[in-house]
């Protein structure tokens, strides 16, 4: 039996043997956690709107992001966020809190390698792909829109 065939058979066998996470429970937890975080954001936005009725929607949205991000970073610093994330899974990393946690956790972890090559260079170890891709897509959208609007 050749090696590729052996490996392919083995991987199928391993896949069948490996225990799966209970998907219904995980899905439910992600739903609850994601929903809760979004409702919390909505609450901040409602509070802001009641105090400053004239504030435009974009600014409100930015404030909501800032509050959620700040809160996440403090929870990460006190070592609470990873416990929440273990419960919530995608429910915590898909909202903007996941982005903030990935930056803060890297900064805290790699500060031992110094502020320049530790914090400075490795802060985006996990969040980097999101930022790089995000900026690239946005440039692409902008350029396409600009070119199309010329005609």
């Amino acid at each position: 039996m050749n090696k590729n065939q052996r490996n392919a058979d083995y991987l199928i066998y391993v896949e069948n043997q490996s225990p799966k996470s209970g998907w219904f429970v995980s899905l439910f937890r992600a739903f609850i956690m994601g929903g809760t975080i979004c409702c919390f954001g909505q609450m901040i936005s409602d509070v802001l709107k009641s105090f400053y009725p004239t504030m435009n929607l974009l600014t409100v949205g930015a404030w909501v992001n800032i509050v959620v991000i700040s809160l996440t970073i403090f929870l990460t610093a006190f070592g609470v966020f990873d416990v929440l994330a273990k419960y919530g899974g995608a429910g915590t990393f898909i909202p903007i809190s996941g982005f903030a946690n990935s930056i803060a956790s890297c900064a805290i972890e790699y500060k031992k390698e110094g502020l320049v090559f530790g914090v400075g260079a490795k802060m985006f170890y996990v969040a980097g792909p999101v930022l790089v891709n995000g900026v690239a897509y946005s440039m692409l959208v902008g350029i396409i829109y600009f070119v199309v609007s010329l005609f």
């Binding site: 998907w23 929903g35 979004c38 409702c39 954001g41 429910g91």
Partner: peptide
């Protein structure tokens, strides 16, 4: 409104979780 927020946020996260699992 809060129900809608909860539902949409929850569903997006659940889809991600489903892909993850």
């Amino acid at each position: 409104m809060y129900l809608k927020v909860f539902f949409v946020g929850g569903v997006i996260c659940s889809i991600a979780e489903l892909i993850l699992i």
